[in-house]
Amino acid sequence: MINNGGGLFGADQQPDMLTDANLEAIEFVLECVGKGYVDPASPTYTSDNAQSQWRAQKYGMGFDTAGLANNVGGDIAKQLAVGSPLTSPAGKQGMLYFPNNIMMYTNTPSQPATEAFVTYYYKNMAPLWTENTGIGLPPLKSITETEGFRKDANAVKAITEYQPIARTWAAPGSDALFLGVTTVDGTPAMDTFTQSVLGGKTTARDALTKLQDAVAKAIEAQG
């Protein structure tokens, strides 16, 4: 949905899922399911299941994170290539990303010392990417400019083509995360929605309506 220019939340941080962009995206996925392009077992797959299918060369194309090759490992990892972002019929591009934050707190004996330590920590994380031992993307632009990092063509493509168009779960209304996002990030509501679409026994409107209702109730319960 985000790739298609849509998403889950409006500018008011409330669920806004029954949009033309979202309906079009889910109808596309349902079409892929109906034509047999999607693994019939995918509604019940875990990440381990999916990675096993990559290792067994049962998958030809799929959506995953920038760390897929590292997670799959072995000789198969060398065969995995990141494609360029898809473009929607309306000419839109996008992708979901997950910011992995390291938090600092104000109730510390020395905030300058805390900030200095975090800066030191970030800079010394470089070997995770310069030596290709990390998963995901680095926290500093300087790391992406090193020779070691540039050797990983998939990581470079993720940085140059996907990062500029990436959005959080708060899209399309906002890029800033907020409490309501917790209602869709790995929740039963989102799992049920995804399983219903991958199972192919629903319509885009019905699936999105149920998801929006479930998320709205969860946000209301948060107070």
Rank of each mutant, 00 (worst) to 15 (best):
N124S: 10
E115T: 15
L128G: 05
P138F: 02
E131C: 00
P112Q: 08
W129E: 01
I135V: 14
G134Y: 03
K141Q: 13
A116N: 11
M125H: 03
K123Q: 13
E115S: 13
M125S: 09
V118P: 05
P127Y: 07
A113P: 00
G134W: 03
V118A: 13
I135D: 15
T133E: 12
K141V: 12
W129D: 00
Q111W: 13
T114Q: 15
P139A: 14
G136E: 10
Y121N: 12
F117D: 03
N132R: 07
Y120E: 04
Y120W: 13
L140E: 09
A126H: 05
N124E: 07
M125T: 13
P112T: 07
A126E: 14
Y122G: 02
Q111P: 07
P112G: 11
A113E: 13
A126G: 06
A113S: 12
W129Y: 15
T133R: 14
E115D: 15
A116D: 12
Q111A: 13
P112W: 04
Q111E: 13
N124C: 00
T130L: 05
L137S: 06
L137M: 13
L128C: 08
A126D: 14
L128R: 09
K141N: 09
Y121K: 02
A116G: 08
T114H: 06
M125Q: 12
P112E: 05
L137Y: 05
P112H: 07
T114A: 15
W129R: 00
Q111T: 14
A126T: 12
T130M: 03
E115A: 15
T114E: 15
I135P: 00
W129G: 01
